[in-house]
Nucleic acid binder design. Structure first.
Ligand code: MN
Ligand code: MN
Ligand code: ZN
Ligand code: ZN
Lengths: 140, 140
DNA sequence: CTGGTAATAGGAATCGTTACTAATACCTGA
DNA sequence: TCAGGTATTAGTAACGATTCCTATTACCAG
């Protein structure tokens, strides 16, 4: 899952990718925009969104679902865990392996006080993988 | 993390909770709205949103972050895994324990074709747990 | 009942994200 | 180096999910 059509490495694209790679804490699209603007003042927010999406589809970055409204982006490709602070919303990486009694180690490793975890897989369901190209609305 | 101020069990609130408990696949706010309308035709979508939020803050239901725009709600309180179809967006529960080589079992148990997982914990970071009541914007 | 507080309906307002379009950047081949 | 053709962009309008606002209504205790 990391190729599509070829893609040019434009100035905007490179700047966005570089900014994201050097960012320490999973910036939102707007945060990436603000930072890239220091290099390319006339860049458009729409360009940032479009490229974050394209880079994600090409498997060059990851888009994270935030419990709050906005998405966050991550230049780290390997699967890893995240801790999101329920107060300020910041998202940090956590480097621990499985779960079970992981909450304990997560607490130790990150200093966060954990109240719960959320593990979700992404994939294609049988309904969509099989026959029809479009997923059933609410088939059961 | 499951109490706040007291809360009345109004007709709307009860209907929303009941509808969510009997729903099989993590409905969106609008889906809950559509279903509750069959019982309370004049209920407002804002009321549904407000109550889903209140019930979540009271630990009576869970709010799920969807990679797509909209949130989904879950009446199952215990931590468990979810599989989201990248095509139709539906979210199913998965009953397996840890991860490691879990992708395999997830695939078998759900029939989904898994392309990756996302495990994130929720909690309060040291910065927010300690001193200030407000989380630092971007302190590092 | 009656007064006081919590909750609601309805609709406007927000805000993150997308869509659209004319203008540019970029690439490739002559 | 230059022209032609395609990909990308800036700027802005449009969208849709969620939240806010406020007059009205439901609910509860006394
Ligand atoms: Mn990360
Ligand atoms: Mn669930
Ligand atoms: Zn925090
Ligand atoms: Zn599907």
């Amino acid at each position: 899952m990391s190729n599509y059509e070829p893609l040019q490495m434009t100035r905007s694209r490179r700047a966005i990718l570089r900014e994201l790679s050097s960012a320490e804490h999973h910036p939102t699209a707007d945060e990436v925009y603000q930072r890239v603007r220091r290099t390319i003042p006339r860049i458009s927010l729409a360009t940032v969104y479009r490229n974050l999406d394209i880079l994600t589809r090409h498997g060059m970055i990851r888009t994270l679902a935030d419990a709050d409204g906005q998405r966050r982006y991550d230049a780290t490709l390997e699967d890893h865990c995240h801790v999101r602070c329920e107060v300020c919303g910041r998202v940090d990486d956590v480097h621990v392996v499985p779960l079970e009694a992981v909450e304990r180690s997560i607490t130790d490793a990150s200093g966060y006080s954990i109240s719960g975890y959320s593990l979700s897989f992404a994939g294609v369901c049988p309904r969509c993988a099989g026959g029809g190209r479009r997923g059933a609305e609410d088939a059961s």
